[in-house]
Write a protein that binds this DNA or RNA. Structure first.
Lengths: 204, 204
DNA sequence: TAGAAAAGCAAACGATTGTTTGGTTATTGA
DNA sequence: TCAATAACCAAACAATCGTTTGCTTTTCTA
C-alpha cells in the first residue's frame, strides 16, 4: 500500500489558507488591528475553528513570521549560492533577493518587516530571534566589504536594512524593479563621490 | 498656596498631559495596541474625560502627530537656520536634528515614525499630509546635492529617510550620539569609496 | 453676586475582543 | 465494519473596546 494515495486525507489542508489570509491582514491592518474574526471570515471559517490549527493569535503570528523568515531566507540563500565571490556583488544580489521577496513576493516576508515584535508581547522574544536569524546573513555580507578606514560596518548594515525595509512604504509596482533598486542602493553606498562638491557654494 | 496662584483659569491644563501620555503609549504599544483606558489611567483621569479634549481616539492621534511633526520640523528648521553652508553640510545638520529629536527628544516625533497612518483609517489622509509636509524639507535638501550623474535624487532621499527612521529600532543611548550617527550616515552616502574593489569585473 | 463656561467624574452603552466548550461530519487505519 | 482522529461548526464566555450621557465642581466674567 502506498502511504500517500491519491485519496489520502489532506492533513491541515486549510492551515496554509489561514496562514496566507492572516499574513495579508497583518500586513494591511497590523497585528492589533486584525481580529481573529477578520481572518476566519476571509478564510471562510468560523472564529473558533482557527484554534484547531493555532493555540492563540500570537502563535498564529509566530507561524506567519516563521514562514516569512523562511521564504526570504531561502530567496537570499538561493541567490547567493549562484553568485561570485566578490563581496559587493554578493551584497547586491542579496539586496535584490530581499527586495524582490519583500515587494513582489507573498505577504509573509512583508509581515516580518511590518509588524513590530512588541505588538505581541507574549511572542516578542521568539519573533526577534527569528528576524535576527535572518538578518545575520547581512552581518557576514557587510563585514566582507572593504569599506573606507574607520567605517562602522555595523552601522553600514543597519543603514542598508533600514533603507530596504522602508521600501514597502513608497514602492509602487511598474517603474522600478527590485533589481534596479538593489543596484542603486549599492551604488549610492559604494560609489557615492564628492564629485563637484569640493567647491560648491550654491545650487539652484 | 502654590496651586491657587492665578488670576486666570488654566484652559486645557491637562490637555498636554493627555497628549504626552498618549504619545508614550502610541510609541510603546502602537495605536491599536493602546486603549483609551490605558491613557486615561496613566494620566490620572477617567476614560470618558478624554473626550472633553478630543472628540475621538483618532483625533487624539492626529493631535499627537501634529505635535510630533511640529517639534521635529522646528528642530530641523532651527538647525538649518544657522547653517548656510554647502548642501552636504546642510543635509548632515538636518539629519542630526532629525535623529536627535527622534532618539532623544520626546515621544511625539517618535510616534510619527512608529505609527503607520493606515492604522487609523479615518485619519489616514491627515496623517500622511502631516508627515509629507515635514519630509518635504529633505526633498529640497537632497535635490541641492551634486550627486554622481544618473543618481536618482528621490531614491537617495528615501534611502536616507528609511535608514534614519529605522534607528529607533536599534539605537541604545550611550555609545553613539545623534551627531555622530548623522556624520556617519552622510559619510557612508557621500564618501563611500571602492577601495580594494578595483578587481571587480562587472556588475549586472 | 449671578451665571456661564471649563474640566472632569461616575456610570453606563452596545459592540467587539480572544478564546472555550461541546457537538458534528468526514475520513482514516485496523 | 468500527473506533479513532482530523477538521470544523455552533454558540457562547468574560473581558475589553471606543464612546455617550448626565451630573458635579471649579473658575472666570459680567
Amino acid at each position: 500500500m502506498a502511504n500517500s494515495s491519491p485519496t489520502r486525507i489532506q492533513i491541515n489542508n486549510r492551515r496554509e489558507l489561514v496562514l496566507e489570509t492572516a499574513a495579508g491582514f497583518f500586513v494591511r491592518k497590523g497585528f492589533n488591528g486584525t481580529s481573529i474574526r477578520d481572518i476566519a471570515k476571509a478564510a471562510g471559517m468560523l472564529p473558533g475553528s482557527l484554534y484547531y490549527h493555532f493555540p492563540s493569535k500570537e502563535a498564529l503570528l509566530v507561524a506567519v513570521f516563521e514562514e516569512g523568515v523562511q521564504r526570504i531566507s531561502d530567496a537570499v540563500d538561493n541567490a547567493l549560492s549562484a553568485c561570485p565571490d566578490d563581496a559587493w556583488a554578493r551584497l547586491q544580489i542579496a539586496c535584490e533577493a530581499h527586495l524582490a521577496t519583500l515587494l513582489q513576493g507573498s505577504d509573509f516576508a512583508h509581515v516580518v518587516v511590518r509588524v513590530v515584535p512588541h505588538d505581541a508581547p507574549g511572542a516578542e522574544q521568539e519573533l526577534v530571534i527569528l528576524r535576527n536569524a535572518y538578518e545575520a546573513r547581512f552581518i557576514t555580507l557587510v563585514e566582507a566589504l572593504a569599506l573606507p578606514p574607520g567605517t562602522d560596518h555595523s552601522l553600514f548594515r543597519l543603514m542598508l536594512i533600514g533603507a530596504m525595509n522602508h521600501a514597502p512604504l513608497w514602492y509602487r509596482e511598474g517603474q522600478e524593479t527590485p533589481a534596479s533598486l538593489a543596484r542603486q542602493f549599492i551604488t549610492n553606498l559604494r560609489f557615492a563621490q564628492d564629485i563637484g562638491n569640493s567647491d560648491i557654494k550654491e545650487q539652484t
